[in-house]
Design a protein around this nucleic acid. Structure first.
Lengths: 170, 170
DNA sequence: CGTCTATTTGAATGTACTCAAAAGCGGTGG
DNA sequence: CCACCGCTTTTGAGTACATTCAAATAGACG
């Protein structure tokens, strides 16, 4: 652990600041110590679509951009003042070499990210938008109070107007 | 590589045979040598929803079930006669210990799975069902000839009837 | 208190679905 | 080789769910 920390850099982002912008190459992974971020893409109509949120104790990055070193399609933005431990791609590669055990650690972290995504997908496939909302709220109610409605709507892939509708008939 | 092969077992599944059924625990990963499989979930209405296909040179498994050793929500079924190299969870853990380099290999495989899923999600979020179909076909046309329309519809999250409609107005 | 942002409301519209039925297609056996 | 059966795809009418747009209302913050 001590060894690993040498490769990390603490960094602070203010609310609304971008950790990553579209078209730039994501050369880092961030571990969120405190704060909250959102990752979103912009579609052809200019609408922002939130892919996921990142909260305390999660790693955030754009894996595709990070690994393939290609321009990112997504934005990552702090929704609160956010403190992270950042590791660059360069440093991570070094760390893998010098701390072989780290391979296992990040294999497991990656597996857990994958599980989280698959679970979300399953939800979206199995449920209609009403159940999606209620189960989202019941599972994440503490966290859902930290983001505005319209962002929850975006995450649930519905319009804010329709979410408002759903909330009424709950 | 030779070392690793000792942990693998070749296995054949006939068309329509299940590699994994709902409620059983997925204790394997399979590398597809030849053939084609589909992974799907059944929703409350009894409808099959295809999450992804697995083709030659891909690993298939249900990561959530495999890693957390919990009952699977999904089915994995051969759509053609399919030959795989199978590794059990047990053997994989042994292999990790005896071939430390394998940690790196599976970290990278997992990362690539994650990228594939994220890319699919991005497609679904950014595009309407029409563009989803056309881009699916153009990217995967060789492969799309190996599966019936109604399964493509299921994968695209639309009804076969509606897909038929889309094809007409293309 | 005023301004800016977020949420709600409602009407009109559109996208995709359901259900039922017809048409197409492929394989099998007579 | 053709006729039939089962499965897949197409067609069409009616419907439901979710969106758009515009405007009103509510909340947050300096």
């Amino acid at each position: 652990m001590d060894l690993f920390f040498k490769y990390l850099k603490q960094k602070k982002y203010n609310k609304k600041e971008f950790l990553l912008e579209q078209d730039s190459i994501c050369n880092f992974k961030c571990f969120i110590i405190t704060g909250l971020v959102r990752a979103f893409v912009i579609d052809e109509k200019g609408k922002e679509n939130i892919i996921h949120f990142g909260i305390e104790n999660w790693w955030v990055s754009n894996m595709e951009s990070f690994i393939l070193e290609k321009p990112s399609h997504l934005f990552i933005q702090a929704l609160e003042d956010t403190t992270v431990l950042l590791i660059t791609k360069e440093n991570l590669e070094l760390a893998y070499v010098n701390i072989p055990k780290l391979e296992r650690v990040f294999r497991i972290i990656t597996e857990n990210m994958l599980i989280a995504i698959e679970r979300k997908n399953e939800y979206y496939i199995k449920m209609g938008s009403k159940e999606r909302y209620t189960s989202f709220i019941s599972e994440l109610k503490t966290f859902s109070q930290r983001v505005p409605q319209y962002m929850i709507a975006s995450y649930l892939q519905i319009t804010p107007e329709y979410l408002s509708e759903l909330r009424k008939n709950k």
